[in-house]
Simulated assay, not measured.
Amino acid sequence: MTTQPFEHLAPAVREVATQSAQERALHLYRERWVSYEVADVALKQMLRFLELPPNPRPACALLVGPTNNGKSSLLHRLVKSQPWTHSPTGVVAPIVFVEMPSSPTIERFYRGLISTLGAPSPSTWVRTGALETLCLDLLRQIGIKLLVIDEFHNILAGSRSAQLEFLNLLRFLTNRLQLSMVLSGTEHAAHAIRTDPQLENRFKPIVLRRWEPSDESNHLMQGLVSSFPLHRPSLLGEAAVAYILRRTEGTIGEVLDLLRSTAEIAIRTGEECINRRTFELNSYLGPMARRAKLAKL
């Protein structure tokens, strides 16, 4: 049997491996997705919401995890799985994605939602009630079934009264439109929801925990490494996986940063695989080390 070149790489990246070192180094920083069990289960659960009939108490979820641990990437994959389409009557958008404003007010939220839907921005003098009516009309017109709100922990940046307003808004939107909703944020988002027993009961938690040494962690890292256009296979054993998780503090974004920068060193030095030498040459600092360095300023 004839051996194909670069069999250690994912099929989609084998042609990239024939390119120059500069092109391969740049390819490392392209967006990528590696499937893993927790994310696959979460994605199926959220897509299930689209199949459910309208309900006065629609199914909702709260996606929670440490910062830089794959929440936004998972949500973007969810949204991309159901692209907006056009019909004779206008746009059809089963999923709408919006971010909670960094300085949250009901008005800013509605204006952000209107912008996401591609509608003209109302004048600044338009009152919140009119913005609400416009948003409800637009969401009905596009046939929305799932509203996704990322960075939900930003709600805590507002006053206590503002937080209560937003919690009431969530209840209002789900009840009035009978649509499912996914909120996403750090553990602080869960604290905000817990202040309202009714919403806490409605929003079922989906937790993306920090990674620890396991078969799933091994699978994730091998999947990431196989997407890097390196000429030699990178064999990451259990000790290497434990080292990576310890150095990155176990979040998928940090793991990707460390592996990407190590793979770039492997390309530029001609080592062409991730190994102990390329790890030692990497000056990457994990979150705790970065905080310690800033504390010395």
Rank of each mutant, 00 (worst) to 15 (best):
Met1Cys: 05
Gln4Met: 12
Pro5Met: 11
Leu9Phe: 01
Ala10Glu: 14
Pro11Gly: 04
Val13Gly: 00
Arg14Gln: 15
Val16Asp: 09
Thr18Gln: 14
Ala21Lys: 09
Ala21Met: 15
Ala21Glu: 14
Gln22Asn: 13
Arg30Met: 06
Glu31Cys: 05
Arg32Asn: 06
Tyr36His: 15
Glu37Arg: 14
Val38Ser: 11
Asp40Gly: 11
Leu43Asn: 03
Lys44Ser: 09
Leu47Ser: 08
Leu47Arg: 13
Leu47His: 06
Leu47Gln: 14
Arg48Leu: 10
Phe49Lys: 09
Pro54His: 12
Pro54Glu: 14
Cys60Ser: 15
Asn68Gln: 15
Gly70Val: 04
Gly70Phe: 12
Lys71Leu: 10
Ser72Cys: 00
Arg77Cys: 03
Leu78His: 05
Trp84Val: 13
Trp84Ser: 13
Trp84Gln: 09
His86Asn: 06
Pro88Phe: 06
Val92Asp: 03
Ala93Gly: 07
Pro94Gly: 08
Ile95Tyr: 01
Val96Gly: 04
Val96Leu: 11
Phe97Trp: 07
Met100Tyr: 04
Met100Phe: 01
Met100Cys: 14
Ser102His: 02
Ser103Arg: 06
Pro104Tyr: 03
Thr105Ile: 00
Ile106Glu: 04
Ile106Met: 09
Glu107Phe: 03
Glu107Val: 10
Phe109His: 02
Arg111Ser: 02
Leu113Tyr: 01
Pro120Arg: 09
Ser121Glu: 15
Pro122Trp: 09
Thr124Trp: 03
Trp125Ser: 10
Trp125Asn: 14
Arg127Val: 08
Gly129Asn: 08
Leu131Tyr: 04
Thr133Ser: 10
Leu134Ser: 02
Leu136Asn: 03
Leu139Trp: 02
Gln141His: 06
Ile149Thr: 01
Asp150Tyr: 02
Phe152Ile: 04
Leu156Glu: 08
Ala157Trp: 01
Gly158Met: 04
Ser161Gly: 03
Ala162Lys: 07
Phe166His: 11
Leu167Phe: 03
Phe172Asp: 07
Leu173Ile: 15
Leu179Arg: 04
Ser180Phe: 09
Met181Thr: 12
Leu183Ile: 13
Gly185Arg: 01
Thr186Gly: 10
Ala189Asp: 03
Arg194Val: 06
Leu199Val: 10
Glu200Leu: 13
Asn201Thr: 15
Arg202Ser: 06
Lys204Thr: 11
Lys204Asn: 09
Pro205Ser: 11
Pro213Ile: 14
Ser214Asn: 13
His219Asn: 08
Met221Glu: 03
Gln222Thr: 05
Ser226Phe: 03
Pro229Asp: 10
Leu235Phe: 09
Leu235Ala: 08
Leu236Thr: 06
Glu238Val: 14
Ala240Ser: 15
Ala240Phe: 12
Ala242Phe: 07
Leu245Gly: 00
Leu245Tyr: 01
Arg246Val: 07
Arg247Ile: 02
Thr248Asn: 06
Glu249Tyr: 10
Ile252Trp: 00
Glu254Met: 05
Asp257Gly: 08
Arg260Gly: 02
Ser261Ile: 06
Glu264His: 07
Thr269Cys: 11
Glu271Val: 15
Ile274Met: 00
Ile274His: 00
Ile274Tyr: 00
Asn275Ala: 04
Glu280Tyr: 05
Leu281Gly: 03
Asn282Cys: 10
Ser283Asp: 09
Ser283Gly: 04
Ser283His: 07
Leu285Trp: 02
Gly286Thr: 11
Gly286Phe: 06
Pro287Gln: 03
Arg291Ser: 11
Arg291Pro: 02
Ala292Phe: 07
Ala292Gly: 04
Leu294Met: 11
Lys296Asp: 05
Lys296Ala: 12
Leu297Pro: 04
